[in-house]
């Protein structure tokens, strides 16, 4: 990563955020039926990010300590545990598996 690369990466991220806010949101507001997408998109995309961070390892899939940590997190979210409990339990479970 060099200075020009940082500038190029930043420009791409800024542009997408502003496009989403000014262009994407306007299209959605003209199509009220698509308003539901505004809620469904984060559900789908955030879940994909979770999958990538949990079982992705470059271009391969792995089940490791992270998977166990996320299993614990999943049960706690389902049981409606407080946010802080979910986060700390997932880290502790992952660290524990690595320790063993």
């Amino acid at each position: 990563m060099s200075w020009p690369i940082v500038a190029v990466l930043a420009a791409g991220v800024w542009a997408q955020r502003l496009l989403g806010m000014f262009v994407g949101a306007r299209v959605l507001s003209r199509q009220p039926a698509l308003g539901r997408l505004a809620v469904l998109i984060p559900a789908a995309v955030v879940m994909a990010v979770i999958v990538q961070l949990t079982v992705g390892s470059g271009k391969s899939l792995t089940a490791d300590a992270r998977s166990f940590g996320m299993l614990v997190a999943g049960v706690l979210v389902w049981r409606r545990a407080p946010f802080v409990v979910v986060v700390l339990a997932a880290a502790a479970a992952t660290a524990l598996v690595r320790l063993i």
Partner: peptide
């Protein structure tokens, strides 16, 4: 276990979206 912190936080955040049929299906 710091690398598990971010995905776990994301899951807790979308937890409510997953309780609805549409959100669960999207996810």
């Amino acid at each position: 276990g710091l690398d598990a912190v971010f995905p776990a936080a994301l899951l807790a955040i979308i937890g409510n979206l997953l309780r609805r049929r549409s959100g669960a299906l999207a996810a």
